[in-house]
């Protein structure tokens, strides 16, 4: 049982990692001028879209989500709509947090919002898939003794690493190296639109996607 779960989790994360890789490579073939560096927004959309689709599909197929008590269509629909609402709210929440951390409120709203979508697809979406739309449970899972299964532990690690990665990604922003990816540094204003942030974040999150 334990072994089976670990295997399932490892393969899940392998698939998600592969999907991120594909999301980086495939558009390069089809879209002219696509690069992680030049068209970072496009890349971010590709990655978050792929991650969203792939994780929803996998978790649904594997049936990780907690079993529902009722099987009526109405109940399922309300769960789905609640999940969508949570997804959207989480995007707004991350947007607010990033703004509070120093990103400009309006000026580069698109970049900030895509960051929050990416963060959501890497954190909240996972919670939704694994734990269902129940905030109380989410809060419980993120405590020392809250993890009940391998999936919970894995969730703890990936979410923490994603957030820490995003946090660390802000550090090179004030440096005046005048590199192209430090777009905002000439304004000396931390905006969170730099691709290095994605790299950091992905690096951090995917490094820890290995099974525990």
């Amino acid at each position: 049982m334990w072994d089976h779960e670990i295997k399932a989790m490892a393969s899940t994360h392998a698939i998600i990692t592969a999907s991120v890789f594909m999301a980086t490579v495939i558009p390069a073939v089809f879209v002219p001028g696509f690069s992680v560096y030049g068209t970072h927004l496009l890349w971010v959309y590709a990655v978050s879209g792929t991650v969203t689709c792939v994780s929803v599909a996998i978790f649904w197929l594997l049936g990780i989500s907690p079993p529902t008590k009722k099987h009526t269509l109405g109940y399922k629909l309300s769960r789905l709509s609640r999940s969508c609402l949570y997804f959207f709210l989480s995007c707004l929440f991350f947007y607010t947090v990033v703004v509070l951390y120093g990103a400009p409120l309006i000026e580069s709203a698109l970049e900030t919002f895509s960051l929050s979508v990416l963060l959501t697809s890497l954190t909240t979406l996972r919670c939704l898939c694994v734990l269902g739309p129940n905030v109380q449970t989410w809060i419980r899972v993120f405590s020392r003794h809250g993890a009940m299964s391998v999936w919970d532990t894995c969730l703890q690690i990936t979410v923490a690493c994603t957030l820490i990665g995003a946090w660390v990604g802000a550090f090179p922003i004030p440096l005046d190296w005048d590199r192209p990816w430090q777009v905002s540094s000439s304004h000396r204003k931390p905006t969170y639109s730099d691709w290095n942030q994605w790299t950091f974040e992905l690096l951090f999150s995917f490094h820890h996607l290995q099974p525990v």
Binding site: L100, Y101, G102, W167, A170, P174, L175, D176, S185, R188, K189, P190
Partner: peptide, 18 residues
């Protein structure tokens, strides 16, 4: 780092917030 000293006001807010 001079860049961080120049941007100190924001850097410190970031750290305190964290």
């Amino acid at each position: 780092s001079d860049s961080y000293v120049i941007a100190e006001g924001r850097v410190i807010t970031f750290l305190v917030l964290s």
